[in-house]
């Protein structure tokens, strides 16, 4: 298991993996650190700056984990989007 894997095929990227699990755990933690960190840092409390720094590091880690997978999902999907758009218009018509 390589958390920082870069070579995803679209089909592989469509599956839920440990990368998604780690991302949805890290992401809210970053938000909490941003909220608490920005308030405490504006009060010049050192813990606030520390929280923001940890948040920044976690953000970089999160991007490295999930961005290659997101790119592969996007790439695979966009190739089919035009066909899907045509089907959408047919599928949601009231007459059907």
């Amino acid at each position: 298991m390589n958390l920082f894997r870069k070579d995803w095929t679209p089909a592989e990227a469509d599956e839920w993996t440990i990368h998604d699990t780690v991302t949805v755990i890290i992401s809210p933690v970053i938000y909490i650190l941003i909220l608490v960190g920005s308030a405490l840092a504006a009060l010049l409390i050192p813990a606030g700056f520390a929280a923001l720094a940890v948040g920044a590091v976690l953000f970089v880690v999160m991007v490295k984990i999930i961005n290659p997978k997101l790119s592969a999902t996007s790439k695979g999907y966009e190739e089919k989007q035009k066909e899907y758009l045509e089907e959408l218009e047919k599928k949601v018509k009231w007459e059907d």
Partner: peptide, 13 residues
């Protein structure tokens, strides 16, 4: 949304 959350922290002070 990250910007929204940061803004709230600044406002709070």
């Amino acid at each position: 949304s990250a910007l929204v959350i940061m803004r709230n922290g600044i406002w709070a002070v």
